[in-house]
């Protein structure tokens, strides 16, 4: 029981809808652990169970060795939690929000300033501004500062980057990396697959079930198919042409190209080339590539 977070066979239903079914995993100390999946996959339910807001229907969960059901008081003292919507008081200023969240944990901003300095100093110039008037990225930083102010040992961040622009997202992940170096265990959920690579380990979750748990490299290593990146002059038409191709297993748009897998045991890219040329595509490029987490996620769905 040395894991900061341990979940054993947890299931949870809302009326008839199964939100989580038989989830088990452990998170190591000081790990940045990602829970990756679309909306409605069960990410928030899982977080709420871990921060003692919900009771699991079946199974057990522990945070720092405390049971989430009967030792919830201990857990509430040591975790930091940032719910999906940044739960800040919109009508309080940046500073007032900080002071308030510090006060409910019986501490002061001054006392723990060193913990949040890195993040809070970025929004401190706006400390008299009302939280409701901050931009998405700034709200995100304030919410994280508020969740950190009482020096939690485990941090639960439920979709901290949803709806936030790419720049703010990148900055946010850089902050998490630095926090990790302070020894805080961090669980973070996100619907953005590209963020998986920034975690130490990730759980891919869909429809309340964990499809795979591993390091991003491990997940990519487990991808067994040959994946091709296909590019031609006519990117609008190509997807339909590939779907008509007899050996196509999957063909998905990925940025400026198509990721293609074949039904053939040993895919013949020359044949694909001549098929596409026959359909009138010029400048056809077909390269075998390494998958990313998103490819793996789709392959598991």
């Amino acid at each position: 029981m040395n894991y900061p977070v341990a979940i054993k066979n947890v299931s949870k239903s809302y009326r008839k809808v199964k939100a989580l079914s038989n989830i088990s995993f452990e998170v190591n100390k000081g790990e940045l652990f990602g829970i990756i999946g679309p909306d409605g996959a069960g990410k928030s339910t899982l977080f709420r169970i871990l921060v003692t807001l919900l009771k699991p229907d079946e199974g057990e969960a522990f945070v720092e060795g405390y049971n989430v059901v009967n030792q919830f008081k201990e857990i509430r003292k040591i975790v930091g939690y940032m719910p999906g919507r940044f739960s800040l008081y919109q009508d309080l200023s940046v500073e007032e929000n900080m002071n308030f969240f510090a006060s409910i944990f019986k501490t002061t901003v001054k006392e723990n300033y060193h913990l949040v300095k890195d993040i809070y100093s970025q929004i401190e110039p706006f400390k008299t501004r009302l939280a409701g008037k901050l931009s998405g990225g700034m709200k995100q930083k304030l919410a994280l500062s508020c969740a950190l102010i009482h020096s939690p040992t485990v941090l639960f961040l439920d979709e901290p980057t949803t709806g936030v622009d790419a720049v703010s997202r990148k900055e946010f992940w850089e902050m998490l990396q630095r926090l990790k170096q302070q020894g805080i265990t961090i669980l973070v959920s996100t619907p953005y697959m590209d963020e998986a690579g920034l975690c130490d380990r990730v759980a891919l979750i869909q429809n309340g079930e964990i499809m795979e748990i591993d390091s991003p490299e491990g997940i990519i290593g487990n991808y067994t198919k040959n994946l091709y990146k296909v590019k031609t002059d006519k990117m609008f038409e190509i997807i339909n042409d590939l779907r008509d191709y007899q050996y196509t297993d999957t063909a998905y748009r990925f940025g400026d190209s198509i990721h293609f897998t074949s039904k053939q045991e040993n895919p013949d890219s020359d044949e694909l080339l001549s098929y596409l040329q026959g359909k009138g595509h010029d400048n056809v490029q077909i390269n075998e590539i390494k998958p990313d987490v998103e490819d793996c996620f789709m392959a598991l769905m």
Binding site: L53, R76, V79, Y81, P83, S87, L88, Q90, F101, F105
Partner: peptide
């Protein structure tokens, strides 16, 4: 409604 109750509950209060 604002979700702040969640944070209050997950505190030693």
């Amino acid at each position: 409604e604002m979700g702040t109750m969640e944070v209050l509950l997950v505190s030693p209060l």
